[in-house]
């Protein structure tokens, strides 16, 4: 029988959403249209329209050693051109944000190539060649994996994941990179991801409503969403892992 990946355990909507996010055959729903130029502005690595800086000459101009692995693996566009490695970092609120740091690393590993994700409790960074990064960042911002109010693009000073939301429903940000335009109901980035002011505001769309967030979140939360204890299958799975890991410490002979 052919191997069929199961992605993650659980019977609740949260687990189902996690599986959907990780499954590369599931096409992510596009919810907003942030342009290439806007993404470049928010990330702040280069001026929009400027040439990509390179770390080494293009592969076609390099003499590569005879290596079977190099023959097997097709380089990504960024690697082919010799782009430098840049990053984008997300902070996600635990109040029903549609994506979460651990899940981001999983789904990026399943969906993208040539990446180096770094996962922390409240934020997740992804590093890769610059032109690949811009393509991936667009997917991460324009689809159901992003909510303008509860996910933040933050290179430094990321605190906010576990804090209460503010009165406008926005996640706390010490540098206030994005603000809610109450009149238009749209979230605008006024600073780039490291906190430098932008010349022009970048609109990233309307925050999603609570009903949508509850139905599309990938984090368990007993107060505002689905409690982890309500997911019997996920609990059984985690308890099995915990038990096996503990027993392994004593080197059981079976």
């Amino acid at each position: 029988m052919a191997y069929k990946p199961q992605y993650c355990a659980g019977q609740t909507v949260v687990a189902a959403n996690r599986r959907k996010a990780m499954d590369p055959t599931h096409k992510l729903t596009k919810l907003r249209d942030v342009t290439d130029k806007d993404i470049v502005l928010i990330m702040g690595h280069r001026a929009p329209g400027s040439a990509y800086k390179s770390a080494h000459p293009p592969l076609s101009e390099q003499q590569e050693p005879a290596c079977p692995v190099r023959k097997m693996v097709t380089p990504t566009d960024g690697a082919k051109a010799g782009d430098r490695v840049r990053y984008i970092q997300f902070a996600d609120s635990m109040y029903n944000a549609p994506c979460q740091p651990y899940l981001r690393s999983y789904l990026e590993a399943y969906r993208f190539r040539g990446i180096d994700p770094g996962t922390l409790s409240g934020r997740q960074i992804i590093e890769c060649r610059e032109r690949d990064l811009e393509k991936y960042a667009k997917d991460l911002v324009n689809t159901e994996l992003f909510d303008p109010a509860l996910c933040g693009i933050r290179g430094a000073t990321v605190h906010g994941h576990s804090l209460r939301l503010d009165e406008n429903g926005m996640m706390f940000d010490m540098l206030q990179r994005c603000v809610l335009d109450k009149k238009a109901g749209v979230v605008k980035y006024v600073k780039n991801q490291i906190g430098e002011p932008l010349d022009a505001e970048v609109k990233v769309g309307k925050p999603m409503d609570n009903k949508w967030l509850k139905a599309n979140t990938t984090i368990y939360h007993s107060l505002v969403g689905t409690a982890y204890r309500d997911d019997a299958e996920a609990i059984e799975y985690i308890q099995r892992i915990h038990s096996l890991r503990t027993k392994y410490g004593f080197m059981p002979k079976e």
Partner: peptide
């Protein structure tokens, strides 16, 4: 002011 990171020392206007 921004306390750390690449933008350290820059003004940090904040509506709150």
């Amino acid at each position: 002011t921004v306390p750390y990171g690449p933008a350290k020392g820059q003004a940090n206007p904040h509506p709150m």
